[in-house]
């Protein structure tokens, strides 16, 4: 299986360890992984800011970079969701591009979905001694159908137990540029997520999107919580603590 790893712009910039974790997991599942060197961003910031032209330009670039692989995998529900559920609509008026976008969409996966449903990863390399609570990021859950897959994989991690929070499907308030444009509202929504995370009593919050990670971890730390670890699901599965690059 030739897999193109779409690292995502946030992983590239602030959380490289997630990229390495994804790479290790895909290789552990027996995939032949390539990380196209020219990749940058899926275009979502432009798309969600109403800049359709910018979104289309970046979509064209991603399609060209990744259409040669059997699968495209991203450690993010949000970026894989953009490719899978939004790219085709960007080219409603361009049949040729639309078909290419649809073909790419059909083979694009969120990491845990791919590991659980396609690559059928049997053993995970990681180990985690403690309890974790899983936050369902919005795009992963509602665009990519990611819900059971990360939990099934986490169940394979030796030493780890999942303690669900009360409302794991509630949005954390990140919303991309929303988090800066409406910082106060965004932080207030994140606050409710932090309450929920802390009430679960788990040692770590685990999730599948770096955007939401930055938001929730940023709010937890500002509230003075230094204790609850915040980890990407790939890091936990690969046995990384988020600081090892």
């Amino acid at each position: 299986m030739r897999v193109g790893l779409f690292v995502t712009c946030l992983v590239d910039l602030v959380r490289p360890s997630v990229g390495f974790a994804a790479l290790e997991l895909l290789e552990a599942a027996g995939c032949d992984v390539t990380v196209p060197a020219t990749q940058t961003c899926c275009g979502q910031p432009g798309y969600n800011s109403g800049d359709r032209e910018a979104a289309k330009a970046l979509a064209r670039k991603v399609i060209a970079e990744f259409e040669g692989f059997d699968y495209v995998v991203a450690p993010s529900g949000s970026c894989s969701g953009t490719i899978k559920t939004h790219y085709p609509h960007l080219f409603d008026d361009d049949r040729g591009m639309r078909e290419r976008a649809e073909r790419l969409a059909a083979k694009t996966y969120e990491l845990t979905d791919f590991l659980a449903s396609v690559a059928k990863l049997a053993r995970v390399p990681g180990r985690f001694d403690g309890t974790v609570t899983y936050h369902d990021s919005c795009a992963g859950l509602r665009e990519m159908g990611v819900k059971a897959q990360p939990r099934a994989l986490l169940a394979k991690v030796p030493g780890l137990a999942v303690k669900e929070m009360a409302t794991p499907e509630q949005c954390c308030g990140f919303g991309g540029t929303f988090s800066v444009k409406f910082g106060e509202v965004s932080a207030a929504i994140a606050d409710r997520k932090c309450d929920d995370v802390e009430a679960s009593g788990a040692d770590a919050l685990v999730l599948g999107d770096v955007g939401c990670m930055l938001n929730i971890e940023g709010r937890l730390r500002r509230r003075g919580n230094r204790k609850t670890k915040v980890l990407h699901v790939a890091e936990v599965l690969a046995g990384r603590d988020g600081r090892s690059e």
Partner: peptide
């Protein structure tokens, strides 16, 4: 943890910004 982001104060008014290790995935991978 970044407590004040110069161009995105909207973020850091209510949150820290986890800064990352200072090198991009691209660099580390290369």
């Amino acid at each position: 943890m970044v407590s004040h982001l110069p161009f995105a104060g909207g973020w850091t008014d209510g949150r820290e910004f986890p800064s990352g290790p200072g090198r991009t995935f691209r660099e580390l991978y290369a």
